[in-house]
Design a binder for these strands. Structure first.
Length: 245
RNA sequence: CACCGAGCUAU
């Protein structure tokens, strides 16, 4: 079963749907009982593919097999609605899991902060953040990143920095993605100089820029009408072995 | 310390 789960999980993320269906049928033929992880992997495959009906079908099979959806299942369903911009359904799913006594964990909370942010309700995002801390979870860099991006989406620029400081004070180190979020925020405001300072700082801190980082900086310089600087970042990107798209 | 889920990726 575990071998099948691993394969389905990897193939599913790669978008090889038919190959996964094949494995699914093969398991049935060989009378290998799928477990919760199998169904969760199949569910995520449809979530990545944006197929809500198919995902619901997997949920039904899971229940028919006498299994109970767990926190991973619910988080996947929330993600599915979030990706489809169906925020009310995502929130409903978050409430339902708690109704059936399935405890959200750090991953669920991080996702919900992002969902509330996209639903333009910073208040609720802050509320879940607090609920999370009351439940005894310590935010990690992903949680902080989600919260900080929610601030930007809602135009709360000063609080972005405030949360960033709070994060560092709590001993949590920024990673590439968080730097990308901050550089993007400066770039979109036309503050390419600030973005460039961060770009240098991240490297000084030993955080290696990824393709998104370079892209974000090119975007920032283009936004500020600095084609020469954008070109410079482009060259650095190529030197670092990335293929600009 | 390896079966599944969360944050950045242009207008």
């Amino acid at each position: 079963v575990q071998s099948y789960n691993t394969l389905i999980s990897i193939l599913g993320k790669g978008g090889h749907i038919d190959r996964c269906r094949e494995l699914d049928r093969e398991m049935q033929r060989m009378e290998i009982m799928p477990n919760l992880c199998t169904f969760n992997s199949l569910l995520m495959m449809h979530v990545h593919d944006g197929k809500i009906q198919e995902a619901m079908g997997v949920l039904q099979r899971l229940k028919d097999a006498g299994l109970e959806p767990n926190v991973v299942t619910y988080t996947g369903l929330i993600k599915m609605y979030s990706r489809a911009s169906k925020y009310n359904e995502a929130i409903e799913m978050f409430l339902e899991m708690q109704r059936v006594r399935c405890k959200p964990d750090l991953t669920t909370y991080s996702l919900m902060i992002s969902v509330f942010g996209k639903a333009r309700s910073l208040e609720d995002a802050a509320l879940v953040f607090r609920q999370m801390q009351e439940a005894g979870y310590k935010p990690n860099v992903i949680t902080w990143s989600a919260l900080i991006q929610v601030c930007e989406r809602n135009g709360k620029f000063p609080e972005m920095g405030a949360y960033f400081n709070e994060m560092q004070a709590s001993g949590c180190q920024p990673d590439v993605t968080l730097y990308n979020i901050l550089m993007g925020a400066y770039g979109r405001q036309g503050l390419s100089v600030q973005a460039a300072i961060l770009f240098r700082k991240m490297q000084a801190q030993g955080v290696t820029p990824n393709a998104v980082s370079y892209d974000t900086m090119i975007q920032a310089f283009c936004h500020s009408k600095q084609p020469a600087d954008a070109q410079g970042v482009h060259d650095q990107m190529v030197k670092a072995g990335y293929v600009p798209d």
